[in-house]
Design a protein around this nucleic acid. Structure first.
Lengths: 303, 303
DNA sequence: CTGTTAGCGCTTTCAG
DNA sequence: CTGAAAGCGCTAACAG
């Protein structure tokens, strides 16, 4: 930086200010400095910068799985000049380790959580970082769930099971209740967000004396697993069981599952925009993200 | 760190050495310091550490798409105490920007490239970083392709098309030739690694006067797209067309596509191990990674 | 608006 | 084997 300063005939402090767009530099100086820096291919050393107390220009992204939301977030972050520190917290042990060690102190300007609903302890740990954070997914998931429930209700379903995947908490029953559906404990089950997980969960689901006529899966892969397994068991979709996925990735297109699509990539991008607002000290209001029901052939009128 | 030093009754320099496992500290001192640090929940400040000239404890991961290999690599890196700087270089513009700006100077100890085959210019740019880097995928893809070709050959296929996805270069014809297959330019096509991409590519593929009896797709999603589209067109798989995917994610399981599974996650993990060997100054030898053919029902004897 | 002066928290010689 | 001192490259007051 001092080289650039020398070349531009100013002090290092001025170069620093000019390059970061800080106020208190004449436009002429800023232009000049930027030009010199560009010519010298100078790039600010982030380590030194953050050591000295400035911004860190890095955001930690915590996610329970690598998915398109991640891709969207990464793009938006990168475009804003931020680094992305990726943490894939897929299993309980990784998660525990992370929140125990909390390796983010003084290292990032913000935290983005993708498809992770935190326990209270985790939430507290995160707060202790004193860094803005934002969560993607839950609000969207709830909205998606409502959409799915309405769809099934319109088809005459009243016995609806809920298959939730890791990182999704328990507070969804109310949505079913609001819709006037009966909530049975054995109809709310968890499984891993994989095809395998979905296949396995069918055993649990179709085991009781009274069977649901429809199932909503929070995860697309699991929805697929359910579909495959149900068919393999000789049942018909949607006649014996309607299936709606709340996660409209390509997966659900594959076999034509009805799904609520949330435009994952855009979700990531919006989250980043919100996070920046927070970092700048602004307030965000939970804007509704459009959610779109795509009816394919895994849902039909109740038999 | 000076707090820890004080508490342990040694100097900061000794704490630094002890915690990093540097030689020149007595085992007793090291134990003691580690214990004190643990008790004080002290974690080394990476920024300062790298500023002062030490390691950066960060690896850049460049990838053309977010996929399971990424998850595997992240896990291994994290476990080794390294940060993961994620760069999703999905489209040409992101890629160009990256290699133009090369934002990694003095910021990472190594670079991991996932499903990215570099142009010569890009390769040169990367070398200029003077940081070890390692590429995942190509060798595995070639091996997978050989496996797929053998499988089809055994089934009597001689007219085999190749559908390649972004980031895959052109040098695969030789593998077909080695196997004694005829290579026709119109039977080697590119498409995006998505279901849509696969669907679209069918138009090109089944357009000529002579049609292939089998197709190998480098990407699982594209393979699915091909499958769906071919069926929708009223053709039968595998009677009219055998399909083999070289990428055995969950996607291919879904409809039962024959696939060569490379254990994506393990691939990522192995790449990380190799990268560390490189960072430590060691040599790596291209160890063969096991590749496994999973025959499902999208491939059958030639009609 | 711009320059000067102190560090940020570590690692690394260089001496003991 | 350990400690003291000198920065790494920046940013943040403080003056001017």
């Amino acid at each position: 930086m001092s080289d650039v300063a020398k070349a531009a005939g100013v002090s290092a402090a001025t170069v620093s200010r000019a390059l970061r767009g800080e106020p208190g530099v004449s436009e002429a100086t800023r232009q000049h400095v930027s030009e010199v820096a560009r010519r010298m291919k100078y790039a600010i050393a982030r380590d030194a910068s953050s050591l000295a107390g400035g911004r860190r220009y890095a955001i930690a992204v915590l996610t329970s799985e690598v998915n398109p939301v991640l891709a969207g977030a990464e793009g938006a972050l990168r475009q804003a000049g931020y680094d992305v520190l990726l943490y894939v917290l897929a299993d309980e042990s990784a998660r525990e380790k992370f929140f125990d060690e909390l390796p983010l102190g003084r290292r990032v300007d913000g935290v983005l959580l993708l498809s992770m609903s935190l326990t209270e302890g985790e939430q507290a740990a995160l707060e202790s970082l004193e860094v803005p954070h934002i969560t993607v997914d839950d609000a969207d998931l709830r909205r998606a769930l409502r959409t799915a429930v309405e769809h099934l209700l319109a088809l005459g379903h009243h016995d609806v099971a809920l298959v939730l995947s890791d990182g999704v908490d328990e507070s969804y029953d109310e949505i079913l209740i609001e819709a006037g559906l009966e909530v049975r404990p054995e109809w709310t089950v968890w499984c891993s967000p994989t095809v395998d997980g979905g296949e396995q969960v069918v055993d649990v689901l179709l085991d009781g004396e009274r069977l649901p006529t429809a199932v909503i899966s929070s995860n697309g892969a699991a929805a697929l697993g359910i579909y495959l397994r149900v068919q393999r068991d000789g049942r018909t979709v949607p006649d014996d069981l309607s299936i709606v996925s709340l996660d409209g990735q390509e997966l659900t297109r594959v076999v034509g599952l009805t799904a609520v699509e949330g435009a994952a990539k855009e979700q990531g991008e919006r989250a980043v925009a919100d996070l920046f607002t927070l970092i700048r000290g602004g307030e965000i209001e939970p804007a509704d993200h459009p959610v779109r029901l795509v009816v394919r052939n895994s849902s039909g009128p109740v038999a």
